[in-house]
Amino acid sequence: MALNKTLRPGLIQLRVLDLDQTLNFYKNILGLNEVCRTEDGRVCLKAYDEFDHHSVTLRLAEEPGFDYAAFKVDSEETLEKMAEAVEAFGYQTDVVPANTNQPGFGKRIGFTISTGHRLEIYADVELAPQIPETRNPNIWTEEPRGMRAQRLDHFLLYGPNIAEAERFCKEVLGMFVPEVCNTPDGKRLAAWVTSSNKPHDLAFVEYDKPGKMHHVGFLLQDWNDVGHAADIMAINHLKQDIGPTRHAITRGQTIYFWEPSGNRIEVYAGGYTAYPDNPQRVWDSEQLGRGLFYYEGEMIPSFLQIIT
């Protein structure tokens, strides 16, 4: 459940290299549903358990990676107040009119944070053409495909000055930080940030180059579904990073791999329940490998080195 006026990460736009091949992955392997296509050729998708118009947009480009992500807030009043707070914090804002480059979405306020990533906030979005039933509902209207992703869950961003990005998320978006990792001199190396009972809606890792993405995560139902996803990966010869395994950080059950365009994907289940009054969990940087990969107990080099 949301604990403040920022409800959840509701939209991410990704760059992909081969639209047809990558779209086949998102639809038939990850299990998203195609909602629509834009005049400029982008494809909008949603997971079967999501109500909003779409949550993922794919854009054909010369290199993979992150274009922007958007958070849904609880009202137009909150949207306007947050826009003012963004400006007061020191980030310039712009307005994306309703139903322009993201069909079904109302007005969005955009800005670039210290890590070099564009984030947006919005209050209004249409329901998708096909949504979960709400009256005497079945568990699904069509049997989920592939890995059976339930929703867009979170994303991990790499960039400089994550301490400021973390402060922005707390002071402007009203989020909190259940878990962090610090270097020996006390500087922030990584932070996990949430607006809900989830252990994270987004995360940051300190990195000298701006605007980079480590992965985007999708929720699965449970550990059995993570294993099922690993079976599908093997059948489809997808390149694996690590897993199935478990995090100590966030306590989630996970597997990481790359989609055909080279963006890293996580499918994720579980995790602890986060509350803003809980003591913050703190990891020392020399223990980060164990924190990320609890069973293996050490860092996997590719996990930190490969980003888009």
Results as ranks from 00 to 15, higher is better:
residue 156 L to D: 14
residue 138 N to P: 07
residue 172 V to F: 00
residue 126 E to F: 06
residue 142 E to K: 06
residue 118 R to I: 11
residue 140 W to M: 08
residue 146 G to H: 02
residue 171 E to N: 09
residue 130 Q to M: 14
residue 153 D to H: 06
residue 121 I to F: 08
residue 125 V to I: 07
residue 159 G to S: 02
residue 118 R to G: 10
residue 139 I to V: 12
residue 128 A to C: 01
residue 131 I to S: 03
residue 132 P to K: 13
residue 132 P to N: 12
residue 128 A to H: 02
residue 159 G to Y: 01
residue 142 E to F: 03
residue 149 A to Q: 03
residue 166 E to Q: 13
residue 177 V to H: 04
residue 157 L to V: 03
residue 130 Q to N: 13
residue 128 A to Q: 02
residue 180 V to K: 02
residue 169 C to L: 13
residue 161 N to A: 14
residue 164 E to T: 03
residue 149 A to C: 09
residue 124 D to H: 11
residue 138 N to G: 10
residue 117 H to T: 01
residue 182 N to A: 09
residue 113 I to Q: 15
residue 132 P to V: 03
residue 165 A to Q: 09
residue 140 W to Y: 15
residue 143 E to P: 06
residue 163 A to G: 11
residue 152 L to H: 02
residue 155 F to M: 14
residue 149 A to G: 08
residue 114 S to W: 07
residue 133 E to D: 14
residue 145 R to Q: 15
residue 149 A to M: 03
residue 139 I to P: 03
residue 120 E to P: 05
residue 144 P to C: 05
residue 158 Y to N: 08
residue 138 N to K: 06
residue 162 I to Y: 02
residue 144 P to F: 04
residue 115 T to N: 13
residue 118 R to T: 12
residue 164 E to K: 03
residue 144 P to G: 11
residue 162 I to C: 09
residue 140 W to R: 09
residue 113 I to K: 07
residue 131 I to M: 01
residue 130 Q to C: 09
residue 181 C to P: 03
residue 121 I to Y: 10
residue 174 G to C: 01
residue 135 R to G: 08
residue 125 V to L: 06
residue 155 F to T: 07
residue 159 G to V: 00
residue 138 N to W: 14
residue 138 N to V: 11
residue 137 P to R: 13
residue 152 L to W: 02
residue 133 E to I: 00
residue 167 R to V: 04
residue 172 V to R: 02
residue 127 L to P: 06
residue 130 Q to I: 08
residue 172 V to M: 07
residue 172 V to A: 10
residue 120 E to S: 07
residue 160 P to D: 02
residue 161 N to Q: 09
residue 126 E to K: 06
residue 181 C to Q: 02
residue 123 A to W: 02
residue 163 A to I: 06
residue 132 P to S: 09
residue 133 E to Y: 01
residue 150 Q to K: 11
residue 142 E to I: 05
residue 141 T to I: 15
residue 172 V to P: 01
residue 146 G to Q: 04
residue 134 T to K: 11
residue 157 L to P: 04
residue 177 V to S: 13
residue 170 K to P: 10
residue 153 D to L: 01
residue 135 R to S: 08
residue 157 L to I: 01
residue 159 G to C: 08
residue 164 E to S: 13
residue 143 E to R: 05
residue 164 E to H: 03
residue 181 C to M: 04
residue 182 N to M: 15
residue 137 P to Q: 10
residue 161 N to R: 07
residue 141 T to Y: 10
residue 149 A to W: 01
residue 167 R to Y: 15
residue 130 Q to P: 06
residue 138 N to I: 08
residue 139 I to G: 08
residue 134 T to Q: 12
residue 148 R to N: 13
residue 129 P to N: 05
residue 135 R to P: 04
residue 170 K to Q: 15
